[in-house]
Amino acid sequence: MNTDDILNVSKILLEYLPNTLKLFALTLVFSIPLGVIVAGLKRCRFKPVSWLTNLYILIMRGTPLMLQIVAVYYAIPMIVKGAKDSAAASGTELSGFMQSLDSFMRSDNYMIIMLVIAFAFNYAAYFAEIFRGGIESIPVGQYEAASMLGLTRRQTFFRIIMPQVIKRVIPATSNEVIVLVKDTSLATVIAYAEIMLKAKQMMNTYSSIIPLFIAGAFYFVMNAIVTVAFAMLEKHYNYYH
């Protein structure tokens, strides 16, 4: 590969960068609030809820994200195919619900929606454990002081506990976000047009490993930005310890 080729590959990868960023951003937007909810459910005093949450976390963390992506992506097509087969066998029409599922899975946004669902539910499990650890690390005296001052449970959580938890979970969260940048490449498994997929295609086109390195440089730069952003966030919370 000559310099022109390298420039050309970089340009093409840059065109697919928005798809990588889209998956990254949407995953974060959904998985963080979901993680907060899951952390809350795990701490629920009604035991069946906390057990089910544990099971969910066990499955999400215990099986490969790649497998989860494939399963989520092909679930609806499989269901629709089953419905179509049985409709054909009995000579009846496909139900309205199955018809709408059928058109949904053929729509332009189907792939990104399924990807975000798979990623968000997977990452929420990790975030939930980070947040739970953060919540449980707050000394019980903080709750007691809040209760002596007459603050409600809601006020105690949002005014006293949550701000302290945020500071404590920043390092662990930044770890997870860095992994997410790289994990977006798993979307190649269902041929989502992001950087890694294109890099692999161009590896074949040019019979060279260099496109992969260029893709690597993209991820590296993204993570450099993430690292700096989290360092700034950490600094922002440095006014107390």
Partner: peptide, 19 residues
């Protein structure tokens, strides 16, 4: 058991204002 993320003033006025 002061609230570490709040200034001295915020620690004192939190309950009078919120409660």
């Amino acid at each position: 058991n002061l609230f570490p993320h709040m200034s001295v003033m915020q620690n004192i006025i939190e309950a009078p204002v919120r409660v």
